[in-house]
Design a protein around this nucleic acid. Structure first.
Lengths: 222, 222
DNA sequence: TAGGCCTGACTGATCAATCAGTCAAACCCG
DNA sequence: CGGGTTTGACTGATTGATCAGTCAGGCCTA
């Protein structure tokens, strides 16, 4: 009788299913992933998926709910550690936004495809984004508004959205950048993250500058 | 099934099918779209789809081939009209990149979802992107390399990729930006395009500056 | 402690529905 | 008439979902 056998058995089964589902959804997409394939990958019966999650939709949400919880926690932790008046505040904020969803594998992980699918998502994904990602997004919008000189709420929200778009362009990388560069092999994760952060920083600052100018023009006119 | 036959008799039927397929693929995705639903929308029999296109995969590629041809033509026309030594060359290049895929409807059209799906796409989409979009992409990379001071090929390729990511974040807009802004209603298309261009311009310039600095550091060291 | 009971976890078999794709026959126009 | 075009009817395969039923182990009572 091993002592650790007191733990409920179902927990790790559920986790096993969730991981298998994450992989399948990531590779094939929601409609492309079959419950049968998920069950086979998890080495359980297909009926067990419905026993634990009820339906394919709810299993999908469970995958997103689990992973978004981790990502949001990491993001908010990194964001909380940023001194918004410091010199490199904007860079730190952007890194807090970019790093967690890329994960330790650098954007090649199982979840990254699902993540980018959420951003450009369809009807189904909208409610999930709103539920699982909007609260954290608002925290980042507020941080950007604080840290970027001349940025109002609207500018910060637009910056957040555009920066997120830049992020997903380097997620699940398939070698296209290298192809366009005329190089072989892959760039390192840290190199790409650095380029991404630099690009987003320049974009955010330019946007804030432009919008501030426009607002001043409006004021002078009226 | 006729190949690229020059017989123009059934062209309007083919066009009708292509349009219906574009809508369905856009709303439901490749796996979510059913041939039956496409046929119903086109008001033809399902068998006719297979007669003209052979398979679902080939129909999908036909949709992308057709639309990419239009987009690429518009993009290259706009790009060709840019004086790369002029003051606002970079902005013009970026607009040439952003406008055509957004179409006249401003990113709410039927194809935009497919377009963004290609960017974050799966295995299936990679070959299509390479075949139908890479040549034009290379023209833009070359233009960026020319027009942006201090940008080498690698920087230009990275800029292109990141700018494209920013583009798809405002494609098929679902009101999230406005939600994060705390506003109601929608921003106008031109306003969003202006913000996007400004952001991308700032990003590209920042990236070029940074990469040039790094290269200079390398040179001094060696 | 023995015995009956209950419950959560899990499965194989199977459901109706839908999937992409096929085919012979009918259509239509030159 | 003849060939490109179009269709209804159909196929086998696969989809998500449901079912009754098995099994192990904790709980309660006597």
């Amino acid at each position: 009788m091993p002592e650790d056998s007191l733990k409920p058995v179902a927990t790790d089964t559920v986790a096993k299913i969730l991981f298998a589902a994450e992989v399948e959804f990531s590779v094939r997409g929601f409609d492309g992933a079959a419950m049968k394939a998920i069950a086979r990958r998890a080495a359980v019966s297909q009926a067990l998926l419905h026993y634990h999650f009820g339906s394919k939709d709810r299993l999908y949400e469970a995958v997103i709910a689990q992973r978004s919880q981790t990502i949001n926690a990491e993001r908010l932790a990194l964001l909380g550690a940023v001194d918004r008046n410091a010199d490199h505040a904007l860079e730190r904020i952007l890194e807090a936004l970019f790093r967690p969803p890329l994960g330790p594998s650098g954007g090649q992980g199982t979840y990254t495809r699902i993540f980018s699918g959420l951003v450009v998502g369809q009807e189904r994904e909208r409610a999930l984004v709103r539920k699982h990602y909007d609260p954290t997004a608002l925290a980042f919008v507020a941080a950007l508004e604080d840290a970027v000189p001349g940025a109002d709420r609207a500018t910060a929200a637009m910056s957040y959205t555009l920066a997120l778009g830049a992020l997903i362009s380097v997620i699940g990388r398939d070698g296209r950048v290298e192809r366009l560069m005329g190089r072989r092999g892959m760039q390192s994760f840290d190199a790409v993250l650095g380029q991404l952060t630099c690009f987003a920083k320049g974009g955010v600052l330019a946007l804030a500058r432009e919008n501030q100018n426009n607002q001043n023009h409006k004021r002078r006119k009226s």
